[in-house]
Design a protein around this nucleic acid. Structure first.
Length: 282
DNA sequence: AGCCAGGACAAGT
DNA sequence: ACTTGTCATGGC
C-alpha cells in the first residue's frame, strides 16, 4: 500500500480486495451516496469522498496523509489483511461452492468500522424499513440534532442530544414506532446501563446480551451493530435476504456458527451476491 | 392500489 | 420454545 498526498487529496494504491462501489453499496452504511465509482458522504464527523481511480487505487478528499493514517485507514479496514481472512474462510468452507462464488462477486467488500453509537441507532431505524427511507430518517435525525446541539449536522447526534429531541421530537421526524426505541437506546447509553466500552472489549456474545437490553434491539440489530460498529467479525446478522440465501443454498441445515470467526464477512458476501443476482435479473 | 421493507415485541399456542 | 398480529411510514 502506497500513500501519497497532493492538493488536499490522498492517493492510495496497491490495494487488494477493496472496491469503493461494493464497500459502500452493500447496505452497511446509510450516509453515503454511491455514484459510479465514487462514494460521497458523512462519517467520523466529516464530509468525505472516496473515489476509485483504478483497480486497487483510490483517492480520498479532503484528506491529508496523517488523517488517512489516523482515521480513514481504520475506518475502511485497510489495516486488516483481507487476503489472509479470505483464505482462512475459503479453507474452512472448502466444499462450499456458493460461498466461493459469492466471494468472487463481492471480492471488493470490506467491513467498515463505523462509530458504534451511530451504527446502533442506524440499525434500530433500519428495522421493517427500506434503505432509501432509512437514509432519509438518519439524515433528518442529524439535522434535528444539529439544531439542538449547535453542532454541525455532519456529526451524528450524541445520546444526550437525542434525549433532548425526545420521543415526540423523534416521532415528528417520522420515525414512527421506532421513536421510543431510539430514545431508550440513547438513555441507556447515556446513563451507562448499556456500556459500549464493555461491548468493544468483550466477546460478540457478551456484546449481544448488552445491546439487547435496549428496547427495540434484537438479534439482528445487535449483530449488525457488532459487525459494522465494533468490528466483531463473528457476528452473523440474519435478515430476510440471508434467510433466503440459507434456504436456497444450504437447505436450512446451517447456522452462522458454521462460518467460523469471520462469519460476518461471509454473511456480507452472501447477502451481496444474492442481491446482486436479483438486480441483474431485471 | 397494495405489498413490502437489512425486525422486535407481546400475546397466544 | 415456536407462531402470529401489530407497530408508523412511505418506496416502488
Amino acid at each position: 500500500m502506497t500513500v501519497t498526498e497532493k492538493d488536499g487529496k490522498v492517493n492510495v494504491k496497491g490495494l487488494e480486495y477493496f472496491s469503493v462501489n461494493q464497500t459502500f453499496d452493500c447496505g452497511q452504511c446509510f450516509r453515503f451516496e454511491v455514484d459510479g465509482s465514487s462514494a460521497k458522504g458523512l462519517a467520523m464527523g466529516k464530509e468525505i469522498t472516496f473515489s476509485q481511480i483504478n483497480d486497487g487505487e483510490i483517492e480520498i478528499y479532503p484528506c491529508t496523509c496523517s488523517e488517512f493514517e489516523s482515521v480513514w485507514k481504520r475506518y475502511l479496514s485497510l489495516d486488516e489483511d483481507y487476503g489472509k481472512i479470505r483464505s482462512g474462510l475459503a479453507e474452512l468452507r472448502r466444499e462450499d461452492k456458493k460461498l466461493s462464488e459469492a466471494m468472487i462477486t463481492g471480492s471488493g467488500i470490506r467491513i467498515l468500522r463505523q462509530s458504534p453509537f451511530e451504527t446502533l441507532i442506524s440499525f434500530i431505524i433500519s428495522q421493517n424499513n427500506n434503505i432509501p427511507r432509512i437514509k432519509k430518517l438518519i439524515s433528518a435525525l442529524c439535522e434535528e440534532g444539529a439544531k439542538i446541539s449547535g453542532q454541525s449536522e455532519k456529526e451524528f447526534p450524541t445520546p444526550d442530544v437525542i434525549m433532548k429531541i425526545g420521543v415526540d421530537g423523534l416521532k415528528a421526524l417520522k420515525t414512527g414506532f421506532r421513536a421510543e426505541y431510539i430514545y431508550d437506546a440513547a438513555k441507556k447509553v447515556a446513563d451507562g446501563e448499556v456500556d459500549l466500552e464493555k461491548v468493544k472489549s468483550g466477546t460478540a456474545e457478551k456484546g449481544e446480551a448488552e445491546l439487547c437490553k435496549i428496547k427495540g434491539v434484537g438479534p439482528k440489530v445487535a449483530a449488525c451493530t457488532l459487525l459494522f460498529g465494533f468490528g466483531k467479525y463473528s457476528s452473523f446478522p440474519i435478515d430476510v435476504w440471508v434467510k433466503r440465501v440459507m434456504r436456497e443454498y444450504y437447505g436450512d441445515s446451517i447456522s452462522g456458527k458454521d462460518f467460523g470467526e469471520y462469519a460476518g464477512l461471509a454473511q456480507q458476501y452472501l447477502f451481496y451476491h444474492r442481491r446482486y443476482i436479483e438486480e441483474n435479473r431485471k
